[in-house]
Each structure stands twice: as C-alpha cells, then as structure tokens.
Design a protein around this nucleic acid. Structure first.
Length: 569
RNA sequence: UACCCCAUAGUGUAAUGGUAGCACCAGUGAUUUUGAUUCACUUAGUCUAGGUUCAAAUCCUAGUGGGGUAACCA
C-alpha cells in the first residue's frame, strides 16, 4: 500500500486548462468576493457506497480547496433517516481518505436540526411559511402540471400564530406521519415546480442514526442543504445538473432568511460506458446477488475499484483528464483503464505468470538441473533491479502461445518453430503430444544452450518472445479475470420490456484455478500489484487470498494489438 | 404540453469578439527480449437558418437535436 495514500501531487493539477468552476472561483478571488476565501464541501447522503461518479465530485471539491488554499468540508446530508445508515457513513469516510483527501471539517446536516427548526420558525413569523394539512395526493393535485398552474392550498393563509402552534405540535409528535407539512409560501403559478410552495418539513416517526428519537420532523433537502452551506460559510456549493432548477429555491431561502449567501453551481455528472452509476441500481445489483457485494471488483464503486487494484492516483488522473463541464457526456471506460495502465507501467514490478498452462519438456535439458536466469523487474526504471528465476527441464507456457496450425502473422510457438523464452533460451518445438480426445497436453521441445539470456551468438532472430514458468518451482494460484459488468456501452438503452439487467455481461468474471506463477510471487502480500508480463496488471485480492493458494485479481489487461488484429480478421 | 440546461474531429475537452488547439481512439511507420512501453507521422470538427460586427465557435433571434424537471427522496 506504499503508493496508495499519498496526497495528490500538485503537479497532477498543474499546466491544465481551468474548468468552468475553477474559472468562477478565480473570478471571485480576483473580485475579492469572499475576502479571498474559498470553501467547498462534499455532501453525500449516507444511503449507499461511493462510486467513480462521486470521485469526480470529490476531486472537484477537494481539488479546488487544495489549489486555491481554501477549505473543504465533508458533510453528510442525513435528512432522511428512512434510507440512511451508519454503515454508509463509515465507508464514505474511508473512501474519501483512500482517494487521498482530508476534510477540514466533518459535519452532519443533522447537527443543524435545531438551527434549521429555528430558521423555519423565523420564516413562519415572517409569513413566508405555513403548515399545510393536505394529504400527499392532494398536494400533488394542487401543484398542477407543466401545462397548468397550481392551486393555492386552502391552508395557505392560516394565521401566523396557528402556524407556529401547529409546527410546534408537529415537532412535539402530536401528529401522525403525513398529517401535516411545513411549506414555503412562494408561488403556486411558477413555471418552476420547485417554487410551487415546496415542502420544508415532513413528519416521520423514524429513528435517526445520529439524533435517535429526538426528532420526528425532518427537513427536506432544499431547505436543509442551502442553509447547511450557509452555516458552514461555504462559498461555492457545487452539485450536479439535476439540481439546476432548485437553485432559485436555494437562493430564495438564503435571501428570505438573510443569512450568509453561498452560491450553487452545477456540473454534469459522470457517465461511463459499460457501467451504471445509479445508487438505486447499484444497490439492486448487490441485493439481488448479481455481484458479490459493494466491493465486488466489477463494481464502479470506490471500494470495488480499490479491490480490483485501482490506485487513488489513477482515479484522480482520470477525473482531471475528463474535465468538468455542463455537457451531458459519456466517457469510454477505456479512459479509466488507461489511467491505471499509465501509472502501473511505471511503478509496478514485472513477473511471469502462466494462467492457462501448457506443459513444455525441454528434451535436451538435463533432468534435475536448475539454471538461474536474470530477469528485469521493470524495464521502465533500472532502479527496480533484477531477480533470479529458475529454468528447468519442465516448464509451463501459455496455451495461447502455441498453435498447431498457425496463421501467417502468428509469431509464437508452432511445430518446428523457434521462439525465445523471455530471459531464458531459444526453444524449438519438436513434437506435439495429445490426449485421447485430441487435446494438446504437452510439447516436446529442444533448447539452444548458446542462447542463454535470450540472445543468439550467431545473430539469428526469432519473431516471438513468450513467457514461461518452471514447473518444479511454480506457485499454484487462482486468478480472477474481470471484464466489463455490462456488455453494451449503454446498459440503460434497452428494448421495450427489457431492463438494464438484461445487458449484464455473463463473462464479466472468469475464475482460473490452475495458474502457475513465478516462485517469487509466493510472498506477495494482499493488495500488492504486479504486471504479469504480456497479460496485464494484477493484484493480490485483499479479502479472500490466503497463504496456501493466493488469489490474484486482474486489474486491467495490457493493450493487445494481436487480439485487436484477430478481432478484425 | 411548460420551464431550465447543453450543442466544437469517432470520444472527451480548449479557444471567454481576432490564426479552431489538445488528449484519447483509429490508421501508418520506427524502436523493442512484453504483439507492452516509447517515438514519429496521418485522418478528422464549430447542429441549421437568419441577424449584429471590419471580424462570430463565441453576441442576438428562430429552428433542430440531446438532457433534466411535476417525492412529504437527495
């Protein structure tokens, strides 16, 4: 985990064009709008696990605080106890920190319940809020639609004293759920539905994970959020596009209450191909066992990506690469994968691993003899040094590195062909051995002792270089290959009568239990990452791997132009 | 049906009235003991129609297309 918890490197942020939110911040700084103060917040509702879309928001909010010497709060928007849970609070804290960010303050909207209540009373006294006794159904009818204006609630003109007393009694628990609401008195004819006397408080006799049974009325998002921002002196309240038409309401509350004026700015939420980001659906995948949990390595959750082997840097890099705008857009998931490859290529050691083994016997190599070969740990950086790998008469190579009847462009092993075993010798395939069903089960080869290390003194070349593992020294392991959870780029795009679940990729997980790893991998620690040469980047599973038979997760494949060529033809 | 937001190479994003750039993808080639990495080159774009202006991707109007919005959810 040495590379995991580093703080974001300032250079990650430098030399980049500013996004529109940063430009707003810079303009405010230039105009001295808040005496040079910048204060953002990340306001998750603790009703699910954080995903890569939240990472975008986290990078934006914490990143701005960092770059402009400001502050960023973590604030839990816990105003609806029906959906929220302490389990989520803990996971969110962990994920934010793992991503490399530290909040200046940690707050809960529920910390402000009393203040919120007092401010609501203030609005009632100002004649700007009233207790409404319409049922939920009636409220909906009175609100009207896009083609019609709303009707005033018959309770809209209750006098202030009555409102005060009713609201007091709501708080005291004298009424059942749904009997009354507190509503802002704005404009039932507004073209913006949010302004048609929105609810500020509803009655819910539910235990809250932090305030217990102290309250039975809970504030609505629109009332609580802006005021929470204001209480914390948030200068830039950044949220996603769907809150755009809540902004007039956000402004209305702060103006009517005449409290610190935070400003709300909206950006487009993140979409990624072959993935879904809706908390509701993610929960559905977990509950219906389509995946093995929130941290299933196929999930776009932070905990899933972490277990998959993603690094915080790669996720941050991805977030800065995609930018921040108001345009709805979908990013190709390969961008995320590329960010990981780019980092791991430079930082991770190479190892040999054969995941679908094919036995090779070097007929002219003495039985029982072990020759140690020197292998480079990272060709990108000599300071990673080298290691010794044992070469013996019996080896494993990858099944896909042999073809009995190879096409022209196939550079690997075939009958009579010579290839280089990386850091080993040149070998030539002499004989193919099959079982009764015609399956290839073993190759008999010869090696050229003159090619030790992989160079021929006579200068002859071979087309292909393949990896191998000494059978005698091999570590047995399980390897889990992951592919996109959804097989279509946009899982939500479905035929009539189908659902996104129909687009689940049946091959998103392939478990290989007969893998042969280079002996040095025996000591690999949970979470440790390697490049298995020619295959991809892998990490030791943090949850289920154990000493007897390690489990490796494939984080991402290497780029594979050979596979691409095959697909094309 | 009403209102709001958005529109630049395939994708994603710059240019904030003054030369349309960048990244990824794709293609071609070079290097290579990973068909990896790296490097070089190439293809390709301002939704449409009007208007303002010496000058419009940028400002205005209309249209078109996409997205969002009618929880006592956030």
């Amino acid at each position: 985990m040495t590379t995991d918890n580093q703080n974001p490197n300032p250079s990650e942020q430098q030399e980049r064009q500013k996004n529109f939110v940063e430009q707003i911040v810079e303009a405010d700084l230039a105009a001295n709008t808040h005496e040079g103060r910048v204060h953002t917040r990340f306001p998750p509702e603790p009703n699910g696990y954080l995903h890569i879309g939240h990472a975008k928001s986290i990078c934006l909010n914490f990143g701005i605080a960092q770059n402009y010497k400001g502050k960023c709060n973590l604030r839990f928007d816990d105003t609806n106890p029906a959906k929220e849970d302490i389990e989520y609070v803990e996971s969110i804290k962990e994920d934010v920190q793992w991503l490399g960010f530290q909040w200046d303050n940690i707050y809960f909207a529920s910390d402000y319940f009393q203040q919120l209540y007092d401010l609501a009373v203030q609005l009632i006294k100002a004649g700007k809020a009233y207790v409404c006794s319409l049922s939920p159904e009636e409220t909906r009818e009175y609100r009207g639609g896009w083609d019609s204006v709303g009707k005033d609630s018959p309770y809209r003109d209750r006098d202030i004293q009555e409102n005060l007393s009713l609201f007091e009694r709501m708080k005291a628990g004298e009424f059942a759920d749904g009997e009354h609401t507190l509503r802002a008195k704005i404009d039932m004819a507004s073209p913006n539905m949010n302004m048609r006397d929105p609810a500020m408080y509803r009655i819910k006799h539910i235990h809250h994970h932090r305030t217990g049974d102290q309250w039975c009325i809970y504030p609505m998002y629109d009332f609580a959020h802006g005021i929470s921002d204001s209480i914390e002196n948030i200068t830039h309240s950044i949220c996603t596009l769907e809150f755009e038409h809540h902004r007039p309401l956000y402004d209305w509350f702060l103006d009517e209450l005449d409290i610190f004026r935070s400003r709300q700015y909206e950006f487009a939420r993140l979409n990624i191909t072959h993935a879904i980001m809706s908390k509701r659906r993610l929960l559905e995948l977990v509950e219906n066992k389509h995946v093995q949990g929130w941290d299933d390595p196929r999930m776009p959750t932070i905990s899933g990506l972490r277990r998959r082997g993603y690094t915080p840097q790669a996720i941050r890099e991805f977030c800065t690469r995609i930018g921040v705008t108001k345009q709805n857009s979908t990013h190709d998931i390969s961008w995320l994968e590329d960010s990981l490859r780019a980092q791991l290529n430079k930082e991770v050691q190479r190892r040999a691993a054969v995941i679908r083994p094919l036995k090779v016997v070097i007929e002219n190599f003495p039985e029982g003899h072990v020759e140690f070969m020197e292998a480079v740990n990272n060709p990108e950086d000599p300071s990673f040094g080298t290691r010794q790998v044992p070469f013996t008469r019996e080896l494993y190579i990858e099944q896909s590195d042999f073809m009995e009847d190879p096409p022209k462009k196939f550079f690997r092993l075939g009958p009579g062909r010579e290839v280089r075993l990386r850091y080993g010798f040149f070998i030539t395939c002499q004989e193919v051995i099959k079982d009764g069903d015609g399956n290839i089960i073993e190759l008999r080869c010869t090696y050229d002792p003159e090619t030790r290390g992989g160079q021929a003194p006579d200068g002859r070349k071979v087309k292909g270089t393949i990896h191998w593992v000494s059978a005698e020294h091999a570590v047995e392991a399980e390897v889990r290959l992951y592919d996109h959870l959804f097989q279509t780029p946009n899982p939500s795009d479905v035929e009539e009568g189908q659902s996104y679940l129909d687009n689940l990729n049946p091959h998103s997980l392939e478990v290989l239990t007969d893998c042969k790893l280079e002996s040095s991998l025996a000591e690999a620690q949970p979470g440790e990452r390697f490049q298995f040469e020619r295959l991809g980047y892998f990490c030791v599973d943090t949850k289920e791997s154990n000493g007897t038979k390690p489990i490796f997760n494939r984080s991402v494949t290497l780029r594979d132009t050979w596979a691409k060529m095959q697909k094309r033809s």
